[in-house]
Design a protein around this nucleic acid. Structure first.
Lengths: 132, 132
DNA sequence: ATGCGTGCAAACGATTTGCAGAGAA
DNA sequence: TTCTCTGCAAATCGTTTGCACGCAT
């Protein structure tokens, strides 16, 4: 039984998570976000961070990325297309232009697939991290 | 201390895992592979399945896909490019033609990124699953 | 007053690892 | 013989959930 948040009530924690996620700038894990919030005085529970993060992801206000070791979250605009350039060193993520969606559709057609979603992630080092 | 397999010794279990993975055809979880092997009489340990699967992935003989719920493995040729069309119903995966790699390089350049790897996964329903 | 969201701790499920024994080289 | 791989069980680790209480509505 998934105990998802119904998102009917406005709470301090919800705002705190939302703003902390935006402030993070890139992809962060739930645990790390909780850590940052805690060290800034917010006495929020880890479970609540998870619940709010999942709620944000469901509502389209955050997108997620699965990596070995867990799930990462990042603030985003609802409806945004999830194509990123992710820095493996600092976690910064940059939205990139829509790729050749026609190519995807064509490949799917050719194989008799009906596409429901697609994901493109490009990993590397951002300008700052590749210096020095 | 990661206790990775050094892959110096030829064992029955190694062969068993390799062939079971090939036989699976699509992406399978370690647990499911272990289950299939067990029900076919192979008395192999789950830990060994994990160890061999990870070894295969490291050597490039298997590629992996992270999904909510765990990691999936699939047999592949070393050096293969990891672009798939994955059926969300039956797990079948089809290799798709290389995408517009130039587009990726261009986007990266534009943002000052150095690309180390990229990942493209397209999810949907395969022909069989979308019928009836 | 009503009942949703929170916090804590316990529960979970996937994956990893310590250790002693089996088997390949 | 020597040293790697296996198997089992226990340990990890990220994440989810049960429950009682506080607070938004």
């Amino acid at each position: 039984m998934t105990a998802t948040i119904r998102d009917r009530r406005h709470t301090a924690q919800k705002e705190a998570v939302r703003s902390a996620l935006s402030a993070a700038g890139g992809f962060v894990s739930a645990g790390e976000l909780h850590l940052r919030m805690s060290s800034q005085g917010h006495g929020i529970g880890l479970a609540t961070v998870y619940r709010q993060l999942n709620a944000l992801a469901e509502n389209g206000h955050a997108d997620t990325l699965l990596v070995p070791g867990g799930q990462l979250f990042r603030a985003c605009e609802p409806g945004a297309h999830h194509h990123h350039l992710v820095c493996e060193s600092c976690g910064t993520a940059v939205e990139i232009d829509p790729p050749d969606e026609d190519w995807i559709a064509a490949s799917a057609d050719r194989n008799g697939f009906t596409v429901t979603r697609h994901l493109v992630e490009v990993f590397g080092q951002c300008a700052e991290c590749s210096e020095g």
